[in-house]
Design a protein around this nucleic acid. Sequence first.
DNA 1: TATAATAATGATAATGATTTTCATTATTAG
DNA 2: CTAATAATGAAAATCATTATCATTATTATA
Lengths: 142, 142
Amino acid sequence: MTDELRIFRNFIKKNNIKNSRSREKILEIFLNTEKHISIYELHDLVKRQYPEIGLATIYRAMNIICRSDLAETINIGDGVKRFEHKYGHRHHDHLICIKCGKIIEMHNDDIEEIQKKMCKKFDFKMTDHKLQIFGYCKNCLD
Amino acid sequence: MTDELRIFRNFIKKNNIKNSRSREKILEIFLNTEKHISIYELHDLVKRQYPEIGLATIYRAMNIICRSDLAETINIGDGVKRFEHKYGHRHHDHLICIKCGKIIEMHNDDIEEIQKKMCKKFDFKMTDHKLQIFGYCKNCLD
DNA sequence: TATAATAATGATAATGATTTTCATTATTAG
DNA sequence: CTAATAATGAAAATCATTATCATTATTATA
């Protein structure tokens, strides 16, 4: 069993949620993707193997998967939530190409440090943060 | 006439948009608010003085006001766009209290510098960036 | 100033993402 | 095995936003 599945089942047990075959399938298929995937795209993938699974079930499953800390959402401003893996991925920021939609992940410790300092300055207790840089990626710069 | 109104009328003229009394009223009322205001809240404010103005007109006006660079949108992840003044306000980041919804603005030159460096590293041409820190503000800590 | 062209408006319908409802099915504790 | 209850799919509901459309306002220019 993968770490992720263990974590997921643990979360399920702790929260009095019932097991469900399809939910684990959704998790499995989600974990096998590597991009920032939308509910709609994930539903398409899942339907290939399990045509009977409805959209609402994908929504419900992804909410639980997020709550279990295996995924988190990213919103690039086009009105569609996307999901990315969280387990085993340290925090990172996003460079988002406004032409082709490509999302580049990057991390910088200095930024993280400064953020902590700023929070201290404002007596603010940070739980999460998102840095998004919009612009044009290498390929889209003509 | 205020700078903002001058900028706005200039934009209107340059873009072959017709003048409109109500649009300027919406701008005026928006400029008199100081918080991060939603369309719905702004509509409520505007209706007090001009009960006949419809929601769609607020949407249309705020789109133009954004295009004229007098306002910009901020999305704190609750599905509602909010607007803040842009003219005379330098770029800033947001600390967002997930309990009371308070939004604190902050600016740090070092973060800006590092962002530029990171973009260079990825051959990315930045047009815009948003840093949001979520957590608990002073008042909401216990 | 009158007029023709066209943009703005309000009301309302449409849209698109997400959530809820509800009747049915699956899971699980005992 | 069974009662309790959570999960499911389909479809309706919701909520923010956008588009449509008939009417009104603005503006360039005759």
